[in-house]
Nucleic acid binder design. Structure first.
Lengths: 205, 205
DNA sequence: AATAATTATTAAACAACGTTCAATTATGAT
DNA sequence: ATCATAATTGAACGTTGTTTAATAATTATT
């Protein structure tokens, strides 16, 4: 019942998130409890409440970490200038990132069940950064900074999110034999081909 | 501490799911507890465990109900034979279905966090039925029963799921001003246009 | 250097949760 | 009428998230 100073506040923060991630990947999301994290880092549950407002906030910060890690993975990819090829490159990396870690995909990559206005700026920014990578891959197809480009990036982002979501939950294999990569490729190819026809011929309907 | 027979097993089942849905829509998902449902239907918590193995299973059945309701809503739409128009009709109905009920979309339309092989057949069937509606709308574009048609339906389904997911969590408004319907339209239009080019010209790469 | 203020840490407690179970009583079968 | 079966319950168990008063280490002030 005393002060310790074995770790700084920042160290404690990292320690807690490390422990939380380890628990989830080794024993599943349901094993993640405040007491368990506290035990694993050698502190009492109360200490966690000095770092985070509550468990939910701790998990929220863990989600932030996942966004960071995905950003790092996607950033490593070098783009060729061929939009379709580059989009597919990013799609592949995205799917690979979560492969073998369905627990992370299922529980740490979901949107919050909260009004978006309550999302802190640092979290919004992490998402924006991710979508921006995709938008960059679309640069060859659009003049810079157009709303069309942003919109296309968002549709691709949301579409891939959906594919990855159904894949992680095993729902893809329910109905079709098509795997996630196959579907992602179909999305990228056809959506981009469709964009091309839009740009060229304006007299559709 | 006695037997009652005020309601049959089936009535009790419906009563419980009614109560659960009411609690969620009125007070949010976090208010949904076994004790609360029991209180609302005038039984003790133990009775719920005579109906369902556990709370999770009860929620699972509630999810089945949501799938049924969505199926009913989508089935009412009459298709015109114009694929793009019909797909958009279905997309609109889908988005409208969850509008104003984000709690349902967020918590009762998520894939399970379980191995797909554990999903009971009745649940798989409900999902299949939904995707089949979408596949029907693609009939004008493909010979019946082709894997291409099924695949296209699944990509559209997953894509819409992603859009609706990010929308429900408010993440769409985070980065762009494009709303869900707008994005759904972009997905439908461009993906279908892309499909058309695929069918016609086979000499891409 | 001594004292005061602040901060980190903890053990213990609280209320609420999911779930189980022995006891009890109504129903259905013999 | 009797027996078996099934439904219902209250009470209990273990666990959870969270709060709090007490305690001791650090930091600030003099």
């Amino acid at each position: 019942m005393a002060r310790r100073s074995d770790h700084s506040r920042e160290e404690l923060y990292e320690l807690a998130l490390d422990a939380a991630a380890g628990i989830i990947s080794k024993e599943g999301y349901s094993a993640l409890t405040a007491r368990r994290v506290a035990t694993d880092i050698g502190y009492s549950p109360g200490t966690l409440y000095n770092l985070f407002a509550n468990l939910e906030e701790m998990i929220f910060h863990l989600k932030g970490r996942v966004l960071d890690a995905l950003f790092t993975a996607l950033s490593k990819k070098t783009l060729t200038g061929n939009a379709e090829e580059d989009v597919m490159k990013l799609f592949d990396e995205y799917l690979a990132f979560f492969k073998g870690q369905p627990e992370f995909r299922t529980h740490l990559f979901e949107p919050m069940a909260l009004p978006a206005s309550d999302l802190p700026d640092w979290y919004r920014q992490k998402i924006t950064n991710l979508v921006d990578i995709l938008e960059t891959a679309l640069a060859p197809l659009f003049p810079a900074g157009t709303t069309e480009r942003a919109k296309a990036a968002h549709v691709l982002w949301a579409g891939l999110y959906g594919i990855s979501s159904l894949d992680a939950s095993g729902q893809l294999q329910l109905v079709s034999k098509t795997d996630a990569r196959n579907m992602a490729k179909s999305l990228a190819t056809n959506f981009l081909a469709g964009l091309a026809t839009d740009t060229h011929s304006r007299g559709k309907k």
